[in-house]
Design a protein around this nucleic acid. Structure first.
Lengths: 333, 333
DNA sequence: GCTAAAAATGTAAGCGCTTTCATTCAGCTA
DNA sequence: TAGCTGAATGAAAGCGCTTACATTTTTAGC
């Protein structure tokens, strides 16, 4: 492997000049620059990133902690982050936190030890206090899908309240007044905010909220199924179910079929996230769009601006969800 | 940030000894070792990975090229790779190749420049010749989901032929003799192997194969839809459709509904991959299981063994798909 | 207690860059 | 022509580790 010394010798210039040409720092005459580029090409020279990191104290790597690698949600997020970073010659180091406190902390620790220049964190289990403490540390980071007032300028979040509101509105607009709600875990911020927005819409429409028609799921499919079965057992009237994510909505579909309900005639359903598979369901699931891909890109851009001083315009911290209508909502009978 | 010098001073031992304690190389008395560990804790010392890489000529990072970040398939693969690597203190640098030759090459180039110790490649568009040439280069790699005879010991592949065979068998066993096939792009190896296995099963059962009932899709949902519409236009009899992946099977579902066919009574369908969303479809999709998560783990282990000399038993190069039956196959009418 | 071998520890030379500061050089001005 | 200026380039000191080799200490055998 050729080193910078060999390039220096072949091009007949000093190390400093080679470095300047490669990194575009400082002034180099066109003539010299060409000699250097030629030498680099001749030797197929590739700078050692380790040496570069050591000398410059930057690794050009950004640690990214997601909850899971699989699933449409994180895939879109990672994809957005990667494309944005790579365009600027940086790269992501991805790790999974599994929505578990110990595991998330370990993931963060791992990434810090990898000497990342910055982190992009999608964490659910660690406390606000922990993150505030972390923000005082050596490694800067950005939070995605989370809002902490004290750290507002490093947060990229979704207006979940609005999302919950939209999902209720969609049902109300179709004439439903008996709407069950399948929530995510109450302890998760996004969950509780969505629920809150949902209730706000009902209140505003003077439609009562029935606590028996609220179920705390875990964002997985099976809990959606359990939710519907549980609602059904109450023998209360409900013509629609709003779910805090698409997977649980899929579970609702399953239970509905078990109960012999036909969709959407007997039951209208709405999801949340607008994941790719929402379209695989039949009838296609109406959902509240979560622009996670764009948010991932934005998180990356925030890092590029804050850490690498890239000139990035339009940084946006809060994103708005939108209703996406498909065939899963009908008028109530 | 504390450096190894400070640890050395505090513990009262030489640099070499610190290094030995940290890396478990060479012998260190328990007494000394404790002093060192205490000093490390006191100073919250974290070795600089850049310095370590520079000095040792290893980066502990493995480049991973996938086609896309999203989608259940790559998610499971990356997940398997990451967990395996992280357990050994290594990490993956993931990049997307988008199934496009230029983009795949650029991704490989990017990862090599990132000074990865090795690569795990899921590439579809680059030629065997290119990979054989690459294997002579400086950076070792492992291929996943691909088999090249000349590189057999660095390939982790699926027996796609068997998969195609199983999918045909499932239909034949249910009594179908008029089976349409939705293939992936013919130029992709996995595609053509699956098709070949499929035809082999038919031949063996003396069931004729009708070229009009073969459609070359692109592995995306919409092409599955197009396929069924196209079969339908031929007015040939077919009671079952086998698809080269689950997404196209989902497209077949959609088209079937457009055509007023009820599933699975009027049409039996089988997919391939057994992606997570196969269960979201209704009726749940029978599929041929692709153990991509396990294969990802195996690729990582192969790297750990070959590059880092980890002692890993049971390296397995070829995986076998299995039939997973759900409600999407019925007897022909 | 003496010696040889084994175990433990230390010394110091890199690894391949970046970056500060110094130096050179060409072009002008007076 | 001497002196000045700013642009272009070079010299060299790190950055924080690993590791081959040298040295010291311990252990064991007699």
């Amino acid at each position: 492997m050729a080193t910078i010394y060999e390039v220096s010798k072949l091009a007949g210039v000093s190390l400093a000049t080679i470095s300047r040409v490669i990194n575009g720092t400082g002034k180099v005459s066109e003539k010299t620059s060409k000699k250097v580029r030629d030498a680099i090409r001749t030797l197929d020279y590739r700078p050692s990133s380790a040496a570069k990191s050591l000398a410059s104290n930057r690794s050009d790597s950004i640690g990214v902690l997601v909850s899971e690698f699989h699933g449409p949600f994180y895939g879109a997020m990672m994809s957005g982050i990667e494309s944005e970073l790579r365009a600027k010659g940086k790269h992501g180091i991805f790790a999974a936190g599994h929505s578990d406190e110990a595991s998330e902390k370990e993931g963060i620790e791992f990434l810090i030890n990898r000497s990342c220049d910055a982190l992009i964190l999608h964490v659910e289990a660690v406390s606000d206090a922990y993150l505030i403490e972390l923000s005082k540390g050596r490694v800067p980071f950005v939070l995605i899908n989370r809002f902490i007032p004290e750290l507002s300028d490093i947060c990229i979040s979704l207006n979940n309240d609005l999302g919950g509101y939209l999902s209720a509105r969609a049902m109300l607009d179709s004439g439903h007044t008996h709407i069950a709600y399948v929530s995510g875990p109450f302890w998760k911020n996004d969950s509780s905010e969505r629920l809150q927005g949902f209730r706000r819409a009902l209140e505003k429409a003077s439609v009562p909220f029935d606590a028996d028609l609220l179920f705390e799921g875990d964002y997985h499919e099976e809990s959606g199924r359990e939710a519907l079965l549980s609602f059904s057992k109450t023998h209360k009237r409900f013509t629609a179910v709003a779910c805090a994510n698409d997977e649980m909505a899929s579970g609702v579909y399953k239970a509905a079929r078990e109960l012999g309900l036909s969709l959407p005639e007997d039951l209208s359903v709405i999801g949340f996230d607008h994941s790719i598979f929402a379209s695989y369901l039949y009838p296609q699931l109406s959902s509240v769009n979560y622009p996670i891909g764009r948010m991932g890109k934005m998180a990356a851009r925030l890092v590029l601006r804050n850490i690498y001083k890239a000139t990035i315009k339009d940084i946006k911290h809060e994103f708005e969800p939108e209703l996406v209508s498909h065939g899963s909502i009908a008028q109530p009978k």
